[in-house]
Write a protein that binds this DNA or RNA. Sequence first.
DNA 1: TTCACTGCAAATCGTTTGCACTGGC
DNA 2: GCCAGTGCAAACGATTTGCAGTGAA
Lengths: 126, 126
Amino acid sequence: MHYSKQREAVKHYLQNHTTHPTAEMIYQDLKKTMPNISLGTVYRNLNLLVERGDAIKLDFGDGIDRFDGFTSPHYHFICNKCNRLFDLKMKHLEHINSLASIEFDGEIEGHIIYFHGTCPDCKTQM
Amino acid sequence: MHYSKQREAVKHYLQNHTTHPTAEMIYQDLKKTMPNISLGTVYRNLNLLVERGDAIKLDFGDGIDRFDGFTSPHYHFICNKCNRLFDLKMKHLEHINSLASIEFDGEIEGHIIYFHGTCPDCKTQM
DNA sequence: TTCACTGCAAATCGTTTGCACTGGC
DNA sequence: GCCAGTGCAAACGATTTGCAGTGAA
């Protein structure tokens, strides 16, 4: 694999933003300092980073992919009001895999939890 | 709201299939007995049922919406090998909402869990 | 008659891909 | 020089939408 300025920029962007950006957002921001970067390249590198395990791809119902450079297992919270996605700091609940395996005869390797409700910002605006 | 044969058919279909079908699958099946039904109508009615709370829309990474007519809270399992989605019978874990709210200053109203691993069928084929 | 709903086809839009070119090694 | 990676634009595919026609109330 060759070094690529664009790939480094995408990786660096994800490692320095906890906003769960879309590919388009990353593209728009990177364009400011790299005017020639293309959206296709951003997508190609995001998918590469996800394959490599250097990023996570998230979905939350609107069909647009969000990317997260914080890869150690953690949960997410989606605000019903403003639709923003937040990282939660709570510890990973390993034991619920065994709860699930009591009822299900497959091999459970992991789980993803999305919490939802009203975020702190929207809560104070009510 | 007017009665519609097509809407009843979509609702009935979801209530009688636990396969988490896509809109296209529902359309293909309904066409067998309703040759004139259109894909747009299937989509419109699915969205209506979801809004009304008579169905749930699920996503699991491939970007294609799945629909579930079984609306009481339950968890899902996605097979890494065959990509099928299964309903889990385990009880709903209300308490993890309070675990999350210890660390997060928003109002947590609910959560969704996706378990993943190897399903029973794929497990025996190994 | 009214207007919710339909079928159809075109539009939308996030994402992927083909291709010629560029740059890392 | 080789070929991974890029920029660009076209293609793709799931979903939505505009519109004229249909059918429930």
